[in-house]
């Protein structure tokens, strides 16, 4: 691609925030060394609640506020509780969480069906937008998928004869 040399002086706002002291360790933080004293600050009021919240074992307690979205439950919840026995530095923490996320998807299908909702996976995946803006690619992918599945079915059928 052709490059376009740009005259900086013609760029609106050029240099207005230039800071000669910003090299290379401009203090992003207003250093006060407060952390040298550990948990020394006056903590905010502690949030109460009966929702199960898992907390990192790299901190001594819950933070003053915490999120209450989607508490752990089911098999995925068991895995998440297991994961939080390990520190954030351990694969023992992250890999079970990734597995729990995938199990959670399957649990989501079960929950949907249990409340009489059949998830419209095509709509959830935004295929309407694909149909509108990327129809050729969508049809190609559907065609390839159908061909692969057909071939697999044909192969398995012939194998069982």
């Amino acid at each position: 691609m052709e490059k376009r040399l740009i005259d900086p002086s013609q760029v609106k706002g050029w240099g207005i925030d230039a800071d000669p002291k910003n090299d290379p360790t401009y203090p992003m933080k207003a250093r006060n060394n407060g952390e040298h004293k550990g948990y020394s600050w006056q903590r905010p009021t502690q949030q109460r609640g009966d929702v199960e919240v898992l907390h990192s074992n790299e901190r001594p307690h819950l933070t003053a506020v915490f999120g209450t979205s989607t508490p752990p439950r089911g098999l995925s919840g068991l895995l998440r509780r297991f994961a939080f026995r390990y520190s954030e530095s351990s694969y023992g923490h992250w890999l079970p969480l990734m597995a729990a996320d995938r199990i959670g998807v399957a649990e989501g299908y079960v929950e949907d069906l249990a409340r009489g909702h059949i998830p419209n996976v095509f709509a959830e995946r935004g295929w309407a937008a694909e149909w509108k803006y990327n129809r050729g690619s969508l049809l190609l992918r559907i065609g390839v998928g159908v061909a692969v599945i057909s071939a697999a079915v044909a192969y398995l059928s012939s194998d069982t004869d």
């Binding site: 992003m28 933080k29 207003a30 250093r31 006060n32 407060g34 600050w41 903590r43 905010p44 919240v53 898992l54 907390h55 990192s56 901190r59 819950l62 933070t63 003053a64 506020v65 915490f66 939080f84």
Partner: peptide, 14 residues
């Protein structure tokens, strides 16, 4: 307190 608002220590238990 040191303006590291993206690194707050009282908001993410997990």
């Amino acid at each position: 307190q040191q303006e590291l608002y993206g690194n707050c220590h009282e908001s993410n238990s997990e």
